[in-house]
Each structure stands twice: as structure tokens, then as C-alpha cells.
């Protein structure tokens, strides 16, 4: 993106929002690894038998015993981390998904010909520039529409005079309106 839009791209997503997301991920993954450590700690910290032969046998048989323990603990870690990260994703990304959904509703309303209200987002929502630019576009369209209607109303005032003047003014107004509409491409 170049031009004035490039300056706004940072405005679309607040830096604090990104840092907040990264911090939450940090805490989330740290808790996940912490839980994995606790499971492995409890599995490994069982005291070994007291005599030499007992310890030897215990160490020899520990690896096959630990394999399923390790697999289950990693699975628990993966499930917990995936679950919490998914919840985090849904919670954090709705600040983008929500406004997008709202804008889609507004666009659908606009296309159906219904009255279009000024769009505003919730507190903390991202991509605010989208609402601002949409409001600007609709505002410009409305301003132009008002100006065209005003031009036509001005021409209608001449109908109080004779028919020929009225028709000439109306035709001039139509040419003016058509000329202004040529700006839309």
C-alpha cells in the first residue's frame, strides 16, 4: 500500500492490541508448559527403591514405563493448550471479526436499499478506519445527492415564470446534474 493509506495501516490494528495478544499467548503457553512440567514431575519424582539391585532394576524398567506417561502428559498439554489458545483466539479476534460482521450487515442493508445509518464500533474494536471511510463515502454520496436535488429544485422554481423558461432551466439543471455525475467512474 502506498500514499496516505500506508500511514493508516498501523491505525487499523492498535499496537497495544497486538502486544496484549502476544502477552496472553506468552502466559497461555507458559501455563501449558507448567502443567506439562507438573505432570512429569509427579511421574518422575517417585522415590527409587533403597537397595542397589532395586535401583538398577527400576532404572532399567523406567524407560518403557515412562513412554505412555510421557505420551499421555504431552497429549494433555496439547489438549489444554489447544483449548485455551482457541478460546483466546476467539476472544481476541472478535475485535476484528465483530466489526467485519457489522460492516457486512451495513453493506447488505445498503445494497437492499434500506436507510444506511452511520457505522460505529464497540469500545476496543479494531479496524476503526473501515467505519470512518465507509461513513465518509456514504456522506459524500448523500452530499452529492442533496446537491443534485437542490439543483433540480432551483430549476423548478423557474416554473413560476413562463413554460419555456421553466423547461430551459430544467434542461440546464439536468445537464448540470449529468455533468456532476460524470465524476463517478
Amino acid at each position: 500500500m502506498s500514499g496516505p493509506g500506508a500511514a493508516d495501516s498501523g491505525f487499523l490494528i492498535d499496537r497495544r492490541y497486538v502486544i496484549g495478544l502476544l502477552l496472553r499467548l506468552f502466559v497461555n503457553f507458559a501455563v501449558g508448559v507448567g502443567i506439562l512440567f507438573l505432570i512429569l514431575f509427579f511421574a518422575l519424582s517417585r522415590p527409587l527403591p533403597g537397595d542397589y539391585a532395586g535401583i538398577y532394576q527400576a532404572l532399567r524398567s523406567l524407560s518403557p514405563f515412562l513412554r505412555p506417561v510421557l505420551a499421555v502428559s504431552v497429549m494433555i498439554y496439547a489438549l489444554l493448550a489447544c483449548g485455551s489458545t482457541s478460546a483466546l483466539c476467539v476472544y481476541i479476534l472478535h475485535k476484528v471479526a465483530g466489526p467485519l460482521y457489522r460492516m457486512e450487515l451495513v453493506l447488505d442493508q445498503y445494497r437492499s436499499g434500506g436507510p444506511t445509518r452511520t457505522v460505529s464500533f464497540r469500545h476496543g474494536d479494531q479496524i476503526l478506519a473501515l467505519a470512518q471511510e465507509f461513513n465518509l463515502w456514504i456522506g459524500t454520496l448523500r452530499r452529492d445527492r442533496q446537491r443534485w436535488l437542490e439543483t433540480m429544485r432551483d430549476a423548478e422554481r423557474h416554473c413560476l415564470q413562463d413554460e419555456a423558461t421553466c423547461r430551459a432551466e430544467m434542461e440546464a439543471a439536468l445537464r448540470k446534474v449529468a455533468g456532476e455525475m460524470a465524476g463517478y467512474r
Binding site: M1, G5, D8, S9, G10, L12, I13, L130, E133, T140
Partner: peptide
């Protein structure tokens, strides 16, 4: 997101 929404913003601005 910045790229995708940035394009939409640019488009609305051009509109």
C-alpha cells in the same frame, strides 16, 4: 489483516 482491511479502506476512500 492490515493488508486485507487496508485495501478495503483504500477502496472506500477512493469511492
Amino acid at each position: 489483516t492490515r493488508r486485507g482491511i487496508g485495501k478495503a479502506v483504500e477502496t472506500l476512500r477512493a469511492s
